[in-house]
Design a protein around this nucleic acid. Sequence first.
DNA 1: CTATAAACTTACGTTAACGTAAGAATCAGT
DNA 2: ACTGATTCTTACGTTAACGTAAGTTTATAG
Lengths: 165, 165
Amino acid sequence: MTLKPVPKDSPKGESSPMYTISGLADEFGITPRTIRYYEEVGLLTSHRSTPTSHRLYDSRDRGRLKLILRGKRFGYSLAELAEILHLYDVDPTQKKQIKRTLEMGIKHLEEINEKIEELEELREEMIEFALSFLEIISEEKGDESDEMKAFIAGARAVVESMHGK
Amino acid sequence: MTLKPVPKDSPKGESSPMYTISGLADEFGITPRTIRYYEEVGLLTSHRSTPTSHRLYDSRDRGRLKLILRGKRFGYSLAELAEILHLYDVDPTQKKQIKRTLEMGIKHLEEINEKIEELEELREEMIEFALSFLEIISEEKGDESDEMKAFIAGARAVVESMHGK
DNA sequence: CTATAAACTTACGTTAACGTAAGAATCAGT
DNA sequence: ACTGATTCTTACGTTAACGTAAGTTTATAG
Ligand SMILES: [Zn+2]
Ligand SMILES: [Zn+2]
Ligand SMILES: [Zn+2]
Ligand SMILES: [Zn+2]
């Protein structure tokens, strides 16, 4: 009988969970190269026992990576993300940085609010269009099969349920 | 006295408003090159009197451009946008395309819904962080000027007002 | 009609964000 | 200690989405 397999991403002696580079890559559907690149441009950090050993990541690094990937999905460039994530790096005891950090943070929050509003507008537009599309093809009722009619009715129900939030 | 200046983007004899390429570019804060590029890759169309004359755009083209730019701001690639905007090109009398078009449209709508949820999560995370940040610097009350105190109070009010939607 | 201003085509240049390949080093299991 | 799987560094390659420059053509105002 072999030893209980230790979870690959939680090396034994450690107190907090640690992640390998390919562990994170697999989890987030990216490649190790991407993670190394983020470190290369100063967006992410890793921890090594010796300067030549393999990279390890703690849950804080993991959270930061998650934020980076999330930001990317909303069209932020890595440069913008570096600016935004700066908020998470500031030492709250350094009075000098506080004001600017808060200003930037609030500015970014307002940008996010605008983005949410715009996304909701986009959804509304698409919904309006889909509904008018459904309207048009319903008026052309003729050689439509029962299956097609059912499909159209189903589609209309789905779209309607999204309408008005 | 000169003639009443005709709006640059509404050539005289036309019934519906027409836009020039730089008119649209200025309006949306992009360059003519970008608009030509979108046409080059088949995302946008223009209308010309002769094959060599200047490009003109109607309000439908303008709306489409607006959608493209909006999509870009949410991280969609031009290829993805081409797929999404396909919904607007389909002939509703072509039974064959209807089903697939509706399926794609609903799929994209669901993606947008997920994006909105994710964006709201991101906002909540940032708000939580900002609040804890404000908490920390408030506990270190010592050599803070009145101006700084007021600033911090103001920031907290702003962030609080965003909290919980 | 002429002179600018805009727009056109063509084509090469640029940048961000990785991909990919090669060879060396490190780690994990036996 | 051996071995196969991972990871490492280095470095050149790639792609999307335009930027930019040059020379030409088309529109518009006087
Ligand atoms: Zn860390
Ligand atoms: Zn509506
Ligand atoms: Zn048109
Ligand atoms: Zn909360």
